[in-house]
Design a binder for these strands. Structure first.
Lengths: 156, 156
DNA sequence: TAACATTTATTGTTACAACAAATATAATAC
DNA sequence: GTATTATATTTGTTGTAACAATAAATGTTA
């Protein structure tokens, strides 16, 4: 078992390698992404809100239905509705009812939302470069490959 | 950029590999650990509560001060106090004031807590084996190695 | 030893997450 | 054409997370 994990958890005993991988995933994820979260919170948005803004920016000037956003989230989020509520309150998005199917509510990013993203995106990129600097490009790619192999049987 | 990530996020464009690794970490972590969380919730404990129970079990029959627990958590948890409150309400732990230093409150796991762990531990192991079955033992170890290298400059 | 600083834990508050229930509209079956 | 089922979203509720403020005990220093 790796020394870094033992050091982090202040454990003495070893763990089965399948449990070890799960723990390392949690430790790494929380240490890596905490920096981005802090950065974003300084601009008044959470990680989930930023994620929604990026998704909406990808289809601008069109919008997305709530359920289309849900399937594109990094982590499955159960209440997109209230994430959008909070973005709407900040005037970063707008919401309309679809004319053809009045059940769906289509959300679009506003100019204010787009300019916030333009401000944030380079900062987020810089932060992720900073937080992964312990790995070479090759190691990053190998890590991504293994992670995708790990979860690819769990999607669709 | 890996196809699994693109498929998951329904993206077309590529991302810088440093951002890609961060996203893959989040996707993998949430897909892998959701199973354990669900398992635990069926027994009335959250992941954080289970984590605290395991930490306390490791020093049984002694206990730990609140701040000693905090440093051993998988993810930095800001309010151990209320996690312990909830465990105490379920009689899985007990809390005493330390005689020498009356500031510190020492928490110990109870017999009820220990027997819950005995019940849960094999189920958790089985669940983590199941959720990582897409990787070989060698790949698991390589993945752990890369993850530890990634975060080892961020601890202590 | 009195004043101040530090450590440890708890509480208050606000925002967010998870799950179920409710609402509204559309599609399907008879 | 009405009843039923399915889909899309919103709301209610409860529990949890994050952060600041407070309380209590101990350490430090002049």
């Amino acid at each position: 078992m790796g020394e870094a994990l033992k050091k982090w958890l202040k454990m003495k005993k070893d763990l089965p390698c399948r449990e070890e991988v799960g723990l390392n995933l949690r430790v790494a994820e929380s240490l890596i992404n905490i920096g981005v979260e802090k950065l974003l919170s300084g601009y008044g948005v959470t990680g989930a809100q930023y994620n929604v803004l990026r998704i909406l920016n990808g289809v601008w000037p069109e919008g997305h239905a709530r359920c289309a956003i849900a399937t594109r989230m990094i982590e499955p989020a159960s209440d997109i509705t209230r994430i959008i509520d909070r973005l709407e309150k900040q005037e970063l998005v707008v919401r309309d009812r679809n004319a053809e199917d009045r059940r769906v509510s289509v959300t679009r990013i506003t100019e204010k939302g787009r300019s916030l993203l333009q401000q944030l995106n380079p900062l987020v990129l810089r932060s992720s470069e900073e937080s992964t600097k312990a790995l070479s490009d090759e190691e990053c790619k190998e890590l991504s490959r293994l992670l995708e192999k790990l979860y690819s049987d769990k999607i669709d």
